[in-house]
Computed example of a mutant assay.
Amino acid sequence: MTPETIALIDSLNAVSSRAKGIGEALRTGQMKAERQRQYAKMLSDLASLLLDHADLQDSPFHDTPSPPVPQVSPSDDAA
């Protein structure tokens, strides 16, 4: 497994672990608009990383190492 794949999996796990708390904060009206924007940006960045990873796998240079993928790190508080 490449370092990029490991970083992507770590980022996916970090975002997934926050999803339930984010949903609850939204449901109860406890999530401020700015925090919603931050989480949306994190999801957007993660989607871009996943697309880049898929494109890399389709590339003829798939076995060529590429620079490390930055990890998406959610904030500790949902509200």
Rank of each mutant, 00 (worst) to 15 (best):
T2F: 07
P3W: 06
A7Y: 00
A7R: 07
L8G: 01
L8N: 02
I9L: 11
D10Q: 11
S11Q: 03
S11A: 11
N13S: 14
N13K: 10
A14W: 07
V15K: 00
S16F: 11
S16G: 09
S17P: 00
R18W: 04
R18S: 13
K20R: 10
G21S: 07
G21R: 02
G23V: 05
E24H: 14
R27G: 06
T28Q: 03
Q30H: 13
M31T: 03
M31L: 12
K32R: 09
K32V: 06
E34P: 01
Q36E: 15
Q38R: 13
Y39H: 05
M42P: 01
L43F: 04
L43G: 02
L43T: 03
S44W: 05
D45Y: 03
L46D: 01
L46G: 01
L46H: 01
A47H: 04
A47Q: 12
A47K: 15
L51M: 06
L51I: 08
L51G: 01
L51F: 08
H53W: 06
H53L: 04
A54T: 09
A54C: 04
A54I: 13
D55N: 14
L56N: 05
L56T: 03
L56Y: 04
L56P: 00
Q57T: 05
Q57W: 09
D58L: 14
D58I: 02
S59Q: 06
H62Q: 10
H62C: 04
T64Q: 13
S66H: 10
S66D: 06
S66T: 14
S66R: 12
P67Y: 04
P67I: 10
P70E: 13
P70H: 13
Q71L: 14
V72I: 13
V72T: 10
P74S: 12
D76C: 13
A78G: 01
